[in-house]
Amino acid sequence: MNRLEQLKSSGKKAFVAYVMAGDGGLDRLKEQVQYLQSAGVTAIEIGIPFSDPVADGPTIEAAGNRALNQGVTLQKVLEELQSWTFDIKIPLLVMTYLNPVLRFGVERFTTECKKAGISGVIIPDLPYEHKQLVHPYLDKENIKLIQLVTLTTTDIRLDEILREAEGFVYAVTIKGITGSRDELSHDVKTFMQKIRKKSPVPVYAGFGISKSSHVDMLRDDVDGFIVGSAIVEAFNAGKIEEIEPLIRAVTTA
């Protein structure tokens, strides 16, 4: 069984953590994942650095550039994951732009992901309309292709996307790129309620989630939260323990 399917049945609010693979050196990824697992996160997205991350804000872009400067590639990240022997109990996902996958080869990418124990893949620049490029290969390996929906997704497309949704739905909370924000707009709540009503899989809110006030605002309307830039920032500053209250705010209570 895919680990993402187990998530759904647990019924707890999920905390999905994002790390940029290779930020600070690829050898740090293992300890980062171990740390996050022991801190109680529900799942981890492993970000693959890309030269032109147009969906990302300055924090993740800078982390990606640091990783690229260390020579990190998709292949090296997958090899690193495959070398791990410690016990991973939570689902791991790969978040990558499309081009590194195309260059690596879609079929090879999915088989290597399988070997690395990956449960899901997120490709921000692969819209629903083009998912055939990747989905059949992932499906063969029982890896879920996570779809994003946003405040600008029209109702017609929303229905189409949700009908075929698998793993979880990545519901983008802002009109914009990734990165920490002070406030979330108020139409987000209604948006989350609408998606959750229609979605056959859990709905996780992401982009801009960095404070417990964000969590409080949306807690009743989503199944979990995705936190990226705040974690990337904390790891980079050597202050990852400062993220623990946010994890607790989601997973306990």
Binding site: V54, L126, H130, T152
Partner: peptide, 14 residues
């Protein structure tokens, strides 16, 4: 060709 853009832009592109 194609429309390989983040989901937020799909509405505008369509």
């Amino acid at each position: 060709g194609g429309q390989f853009v983040p989901e937020t832009l799909m509405k505008a592109v369509k």
